[in-house]
Structures are given as C-alpha cells and as structure tokens.
Amino acid sequence: MVRAEGVRKRFGRTEVLRGIDLDVAEGEVLVIIGPSGSGKSTFLRCVNHLESVDGGRLYVDGELMGYRMKGDRAYELKERDAARQRSAIGMVFQRFNLFPHLTALENLVEAPMRVRGERRQTAEARARALLDRVGLGEKVDQYPAQLSGGQQQRVAIARALAMEPKLMLFDEPTSALDPELVGDVLDAMKQLAADGMTMVVVTHEIGFAREVGDQLAFMDDGVIVERGAPREVLSAPTEARTKAFLSRIL
C-alpha cells in the first residue's frame, strides 16, 4: 500500500530525511518511533505530499505521490492533482487541526461534499455514523472549542475517515493530550486497525506499538535504524542507538 524508495528531504542546508526505504502492505499497521527531530513527522508529511521530496520515490497504492514521471524526470504535480491524490489518504495531526468555525458534523461533511461532490444527506448520514463509532454521537452540533482534547482528536479521526481513505496517517495523535484522555483516542485507533485499515503511526506510545503494530521502525537522524516486528525490536533491539533510545523512554 505504501512504498518508499530512498526518500530524501532537505530543509535549507539540513538533510532531514537521508534515504528512507519502507514497505507497508494492505491492512498493515506500521509504527514509527524515534527521538524528536529524527524526521518521523517529515516523512509522514511526504507520504501525502504535504512536503515535496528532494529525492527518491513514494508510492501509495501503486501511484507515485506528488510527481509524474516523464522519461527519467519527475515533474511535480499541480496542486489540484496533488489534492486529488491526498483525498484518498486520511491524516490525523498532533494538534487536531479541526476547523474551529464549523461544528463537529460540519467538520466531517465539508470535504465529502466539496471535494467528492456528495449530497448533504449522504455525507451527513455517514458523518453521524462515524461520530457514533468514535463515541461522540451526542456531540454532532458542538464546536471544537466546546470539546475536550481527546474528543477533538476523535472527531479529527472521524473527519479523516469521512473521506473513506485507503490509508491513514497519524502524526503523534496523543502527544498533545492530557494523560487520562489518551486511552479513548488509542481505543479508536485500535478499533480502526482491527477493522483492517492500513495505518502509518508516528507515536511515543510504546504500548500501542507493541499491541497493534505489525511493523515497527526506529528512526534517528533521518534514517531508519532498525525495523522489524514490534515485540522483537522492543525487547531485543540489535542497534546501539535503538537500545539507547528505548532505555530512555521505557
């Protein structure tokens, strides 16, 4: 479903991604961990082309993301075409990024109606079902400011799902939450994984990685240092950097 080949990214003179290779099969959950500044979030933003890449290729469902090959050159897509590609990929952010001027329900129907041209009835019916599924069926008419952080993040997950994506990206979805609110969000994500959604999750929740992840990648300094089954990487890391990082957070 996701295939990264030697992805490179530079911000000014600092190289944030120095050749990332990854494969995520359909229905698989890839968890990426690593110290801050290691390039995890940047990689995630490259997957749906929120950031352009400086080298390498990224495929989602066999489609080259953000570029069109012509001979041996990759031409960056126009924003409209990049937007079409992104519409099939859901993304959840650390700081929720709900639209504060819209109610929960309006947050969910905005893109299905404006991007996919769905009728309001259809979009609202699905939106209500999704909000029910994340346990917020009673909050449809609330504005984001009236919801707790954990509720906002669950609305954000439902908003991404409203576009019926084939892939979900999570960028530290619980890092901005109070500890007692983390559980609800993780539960929503677990349920999603159990339903067979392909997911790439950047997180510091080691428990979630162990329980839900099919694959775990440890990133440091713009490269993937170690990759494998979560239990093995977490209990018996082979690389010194992985060991050092795990000993600090566990």
């Binding site: 749906n48 929120l50 924003e79 409209r80 937007a83 079409r84 590609q85 992104r86 519409s87 099939a88 990929i89 859901g90 993304m91 952010f93 700081r95 990024n97 709900l98 639209f99 504060p100 001027h101 905005e110 893109a111 404006r114 991007v115 954000a156 908003r159 991404a160 576009m163 990206l169």
Partner: peptide, 25 residues
Amino acid sequence: EGQVDAAKALGMHPALTLRRIVLPQ
C-alpha cells in the same frame, strides 16, 4: 497553518481551502 494542512490532507485544493477554511476564520 495547521488549518491549511488539515484542509490539504482532506484533498481540498487551494482555492477551496481559502474560501471555505481560511477566509471564514
């Protein structure tokens, strides 16, 4: 800026993002 990120991630193109998300705020 997170608002623009979120709109983009949902597949909204720039003109739509401006009209529906950025300008109302």
